[in-house]
Design a protein around this nucleic acid. Structure first.
Lengths: 343, 343
DNA sequence: GTTTAAATCGAAAACGTTTTCGATTAATAA
DNA sequence: TTATTAATCGAAAACGTTTTCGATTTAAAC
C-alpha cells in the first residue's frame, strides 16, 4: 500500500530512475518508445511524485501563506476566496493563518510560514502592528511578499489597495450634496493606514466644501469582534453629545448597522433625521431596512490581484530578476441606498 | 543569504552533522557541553530546519487539507476559523480549498491534497456529490479523513455534525406551539444529507402533532450563491399558491431573510400574518428587523471538534493503531426572536 | 591489570526526486 | 573504411534531515 516511486517504475521496465524521471517530464533525450512505456506504467500504477522530495530538490513548495486579521468577515472571506481560486489556477496552494489583529501572533505566523518555506506571503496587517521588522525581514530574505488592504506605506513591497481617502471623500461628499451640514464620522482604530485615510478623506471633503472640521464629531471604534456593539454605543453617545448632527460617515458597514439599530430603537428616523453612509458593502447592507448607502470594496478582486502580483514576483525571483514594488489601486464606488436621502 | 544547515553548524564546531541533529533534539547520547554549544550557535545563526528535508525524512508534512463548499458564508467561515486556530495550537497548518459545491472540483481537490501528501483531510461535501469513490479512496490509503456538517452517512469515517433532524423538529415544534396550523417548509437541495434531515424533522414534527403533511407546502432552493433571491422567489410563489400559511420553517437564514424581505414589501406582517424560523443563526439574523428566530449552528465549535478528531486519527495512524470511526454530534438550540410570536 | 559498563560520538544509509555530464550506440558523412 | 554527429541512456551527486548501529573513550568494578 506504499506510494509508487520512480524506482519501482524503473525496475519494472529495467531502465534507470533517471530515464523514468526524464520520460515523465518529456525531456528530449528520451526516445518516444520509452516515454510511452513509462507514462503508461506510471498511469496504471497511479504514480504521484513525492512532493516532499520534489520540494527538497527544487527548493520550492508551490505553496503560499496568507495572514489575515479575521476570517469571519464578509470582506476578508471574499479576499480569501479570490486568493484561493486564483492560486489554484496556477497550481499553488494556500495556507491560511489568522492574526486576530495581534502583532505578536502576526510575527509568530510570519516565522511559521518562513520555516515552512512557502514560496511567498500575502498579508493584511493586524491593527496592532506598528513595527515592521518582521515584514522587512521577509523582504530581506528575498521572499516575495505582497500586502493588501491593511498595508504599511513605509514598507517597500507591492501592495493592493483601494484609495481609501478618495472613497471616504466620495462618501462624505455625498452627504454634503444631499444637504447635510453637521457630519460626524465613526472612524476605525488609530494605527491602520486605511482608517487614517478614511478619516483624512472625510476631513478633506468637509474643508473643501466650506464646512468646519469639528474633532468632537469624530468617534473611534476598534472595529474588532464587537463592531456592532461599538456602533450602538457610539450612536448613543452621539445623541447625548450633539443634537444637530444630520449625517454620519462610518468606517465599516457593521458599525453602521449597529448605529442604525440604536437610532431605530430611539426613534431617530433614517434618513429623515440622520443620513448614514457605511463602508465595504457587506451583503447584509443591501438587506437590512433601511438599506445602507455604502462604498463598495471589491474583496474578491483584491484577492485575485494580490495573488497575481505575488505570482509574478515568485516567478521573477526564481529567474533572479529584481522586483520593483508595485502598488495596485482598485476602483471603489458609492452605492446609494435608503439610508441617505435622494437629492 | 542562504539558509543555515546542520552541516554548517557541524563544520563550525568541528563535530558531525549527526551530533548536531541529535543535540538539537535533546538525544540522551550527547554531552551537556556539546548540546550547549550547538544550541547556542544554532540560535545565533538563526537556524531553521529545512521543512522539505524533514518532511521527506519523517514522511509527514504537519499540514492538513480542508475542502469546503463555500468560503464566503457565515457558518463555514466560522468553521474555518475553528479549524485553523485549533490546528495552529497543535503545530499544524491548514490548506484551504473551495469546492464550489461541485463534485468534479471536489474530486480534483482530493487528488491535489493527496499528491501534496497532507497528513489528513477535513471535508464538508459539495451539494453535487453523490458518488463517494474519491472519499473511500482516501480512507483506503489509510489517510485520516473527517467529514463535518455536510456528510455522507454511507461513508465509513469519523463525522462531526449536528442533529439536523432533531433541530428541525424543534424549530417546527416551536411554530406548532405558538399556534401555527399550516406550516410550510423551504428546504435545501435534494442531495445533501442535512437538507434531507431537516425536511424529515419538519415532517415528523407535523405528524407527531396531528397536523397533515402537505407536499405542496414544501419548496426547494439550492441554497447557493443566490440564496437571498431564492428566498424571495419562494415567498412570492407561496403567496400565490396558498393564502392560509401561517408559519414557515426555512432551511437557511439567508433564504429566510430573502423571504422576509419579500413579505415585507408585499405588506405581509411578520410575525402577525406569518411566523418564520430560519436555520444557522447567522450574525445578520439578530440584526435585521424583525430579528429572526432560528436554530443556532455552532460553526466554530464544529471546526474545533473536527480538527481534534482528525488530530487523534493522525496520531493513531502514526502508531499503526486501527481507527474506529466516531460520530460527534454537537448541540444546537432554538433562538427565539421577533419573527415568531410569543406564546 | 583486566573486564565491564556507561558515556559520547560519527559513518552511513535512507527518504525520492532532479539534473549534470559522461558513456554508449546508431546513423550519417567523409 | 573511418570520422562525425545525433540519439539515447544511466551513474552519480545533490537537496538536508533523521536514525541505526558500531566505534571509541572514559569511568567503574573486579
Amino acid at each position: 500500500m506504499k506510494p509508487v516511486t520512480l524506482k519501482q517504475i524503473a525496475e519494472e521496465l529495467n531502465i534507470s530512475v533517471t530515464t523514468v524521471s526524464k520520460a515523465l517530464k518529456d525531456y528530449p533525450d528520451v526516445s518516444k518508445k520509452t516515454k510511452g512505456l513509462v507514462k503508461e506504467l506510471a498511469k496504471t500504477l497511479n504514480y504521484k511524485p513525492n512532493t516532499f522530495a520534489v520540494n527538497l530538490r527544487t527548493k520550492e513548495s508551490k505553496t503560499i501563506g496568507l495572514i489575515i486579521p479575521v476570517i469571519v468577515h464578509h470582506f476578508f472571506s471574499n479576499v480569501i476566496k479570490g486568493i484561493v481560486s486564483q492560486a489554484e489556477k496556477k497550481g499553488y496552494l494556500v495556507i491560511i493563518l489568522q492574526s486576530n489583529e495581534s502583532y505578536e501572533l502576526e510575527k509568530k505566523q510570519i516565522d511559521l510560514l518562513l520555516s515552512q518555506r512557502v514560496d511567498g506571503i500575502l498579508i493584511s496587517l493586524a491593527n496592532g502592528t506598528a513595527n515592521f521588522n518582521h515584514i522587512n525581514n521577509v523582504i530581506a530574505q528575498e521572499k516575495p511578499l505582497v500586502m493588501f488592504d491593511k498595508i504599511a506605506k513605509i514598507v517597500k513591497c507591492s501592495k493592493v489597495i483601494i484609495d481609501d481617502r478618495k472613497a471616504a471623500y466620495t462618501a462624505t461628499l455625498h452627504l454634503i450634496n444631499i444637504g447635510c451640514k453637521r457630519i460626524a464620522h465613526f472612524r476605525g482604530a488609530l494605527l491602520p493606514q486605511n482608517s487614517i485615510d478614511r478619516f483624512l478623506g472625510y476631513k478633506k471633503a468637509l474643508l473643501d466644501n466650506g464646512l468646519p472640521y469639528d474633532p468632537s464629531l469624530v468617534y473611534i471604534c476598534e472595529c474588532g469582534e464587537r463592531s456592532f456593539e461599538e456602533g450602538k454605543k457610539n450612536a448613543k453617545q452621539l445623541l447625548i453629545d450633539h443634537n444637530d448632527v444630520d449625517g454620519i460617515f462610518i468606517n465599516t458597514d457593521l458599525v453602521a448597522i449597529g448605529a442604525m439599530t440604536e437610532f431605530n430603537s430611539q426613534g431617530v428616523k433614517i434618513p429623515d433625521d440622520i443620513n448614514i453612509v457605511g463602508f465595504s458593502n457587506w451583503f447584509m447592507s443591501s438587506v437590512i431596512s433601511p438599506s445602507l448607502t455604502t462604498i463598495n470594496q471589491p474583496g474578491y478582486k483584491m484577492g485575485k490581484a494580490a495573488f497575481k502580483q505575488l505570482y509574478k514576483e515568485i516567478k521573477a525571483t526564481k529567474n533572479k530578476k529584481i522586483i520593483t514594488p508595485k502598488t495596485i489601486t482598485l476602483e471603489t464606488e458609492l452605492i446609494k441606498r435608503d439610508s441617505t436621502k435622494d437629492n
